[in-house]
């Protein structure tokens, strides 16, 4: 037993890497279909979009890049599916220059599923430098003024989708999918002044701090990490990558917890042995 505990405390990291890899790959190959419960903060985002009158406008800020794709891209797809199903109009953009392609792919792929027309049902503004200055310009001068051309170089002022939704104050809901601190930009320079409703999604790293934003009414709900995306997929009844990933997530978490417990037992046992 003491030999086993010694081995546990000196365990080669590469053994842990292999175990984690197996804990991730096996559930992906052989799904377990573990049931997912929906949290109130995710339901709040869903309910907001669900209760908007059909044809409302949702502004989707896809502020992430490929390094956060596994968590935030499924969220984008799920929110887009929900919006298009409710015949809401969607305006997409990003603050991340390396995330432009992801945002475009999400919008075009999901819009194609629902036979939506570009320029009328959805619009992709793409990326433009400016950060908070861009938000202020969209609020004061208008979305078309901030983005005179869209991601494809087409003029935005004449697009049907921007005839009624000219400024940020006209949008019905803003969903911010953030891999960084852009929620602050949208709140300080957007929601504080133009008073639109805001919800969002974030990576697991930031999820703990976003509960504070929920408490102080920056957002009315949010999806935290891959789990948040899986919960949203459950709500829209379209299980996809996020749901599949939750099996692997659950198994790998259980493995980590087991290793933490064993490692701590080994540590304290060896320490006690060393003190004798």
């Amino acid at each position: 037993m003491s030999g086993f505990l010694k081995k546990m405390s000196d365990l080669d990291k590469r053994v842990i890497f292999v175990l984690i890899s197996l804990a991730v790959i096996i559930p992906l190959l052989y799904p377990l279909f573990i049931e997912i419960n929906v949290n109130p903060e995710v339901k709040a985002v869903y309910d907001t979009i669900e209760n908007l009158p059909n044809g409302s406008t949702v502004f989707l800020a896809m502020d992430f890049d490929p390094s956060s794709k596994p968590e935030l891209y499924p969220m984008a797809e799920a929110v887009l599916r929900h919006c298009f199903r409710k015949n809401h109009k969607v305006i997409g953009m990003t603050f991340w220059v390396t995330g432009v392609g992801l945002g475009e792919k999400a919008l075009t792929d999901i819009a194609k599923e629902y036979n939506k027309e570009y320029g009328t049902d959805y619009l992709y503004l793409g990326w433009k430098a400016g950060g908070y200055a861009l938000v202020i310009q969209m609020g004061e001068e208008g979305i078309a003024a901030a983005f005179p051309v869209d991601h494809y170089g087409r003029e935005t002022a004449s697009m049907p989708i921007l005839q009624k939704i000219t400024h940020l104050k006209n949008i019905d809901y803003l969903v911010e999918l953030a891999a960084g601190a852009s929620i602050g930009t949208w709140y300080y320079y957007g929601k504080m002044k133009y008073k639109f409703k805001m919800g969002g999604g974030c990576t697991g790293v930031m999820a703990a701090s976003w509960y504070n934003l929920l408490k102080i009414d920056w957002i009315n709900g949010f999806m935290g990490g891959l789990r948040g995306a899986a919960e949203y997929e459950k709500l829209i009844d379209k299980k996809s990558k996020a749901t599949r990933g939750m099996d692997a997530q659950s198994v790998s978490h259980m493995l980590i917890i087991a290793m933490i417990i064993l490692g701590n037992i080994a540590y304290f046992a060896n320490r006690a042995k060393g003190n004798k």
């Binding site: 991730v24 794709k69 596994p70 990576t203 697991g204 891959l226 599949r244 990933g245 997530q249 978490h253």
Partner: peptide
């Protein structure tokens, strides 16, 4: 940790 696992899951997928 959940976030890092999610990234690994994404790549593994």
């Amino acid at each position: 940790v959940m976030a890092r696992m999610s990234l690994l899951i994404g790549r593994s997928y």
